[in-house]
Amino acid sequence: MLSAGPTPRVSLDTWEFVIAAENGTEHRWSWQELMALPQETPMVDIHCVTHWSKLGTTWQGVSLDTLLDGVDTGAHFALAHSYGGYTTNLPLDDLRGGRAWVAHTFDGAPLAPEHGGPARLLVPHLYFWKSAKWVRGIRLKTMDEPGFWETAGYHDYGDPWREQRYQGD
């Protein structure tokens, strides 16, 4: 239920991922550049806000630690944005420390469009709406800015172990 509209179709020829620091500096990667970065293969459990979990899923992607290396920032918040217009907010710390990836492969196959391909954010320690499908970039922010579902009443942080589904949980 976490896809709110039609599935966007994104060509790898025009795909890009952009990290924009709070001072306006942008760091860009094309598909080829992303694939040339060191790759990791996290095996993780994922938890959806609609009461299902999937254990031991295998992904391949680039760690946000790798992508944020060399980005000069003092920001505490991040707003991920996607092809198709979706947004979701996270504390920047939650994208660091080997806990977040830009993932392009699931179970050994290219990530299908309906599951967020060509690439999605993968932040398995938070509810899965934080793992933005069709991710296009991350804006670093000094102030927290709620994303699409957070504006519609979902929890700002979304810790599945504390069942933070909706605001006030």
């Binding site: 239920m1 976490l2 896809s3 509209g5 039609p6 966007p8 994922i46 959806c48 299902w52 999937k54």
Partner: peptide, 19 residues
Amino acid sequence: VGLGHPSRRVKTERFGPTG
């Protein structure tokens, strides 16, 4: 979308695990 409806005018709700 193929018929020309803008994506933002098409609201969807999917049943089942769709993450």
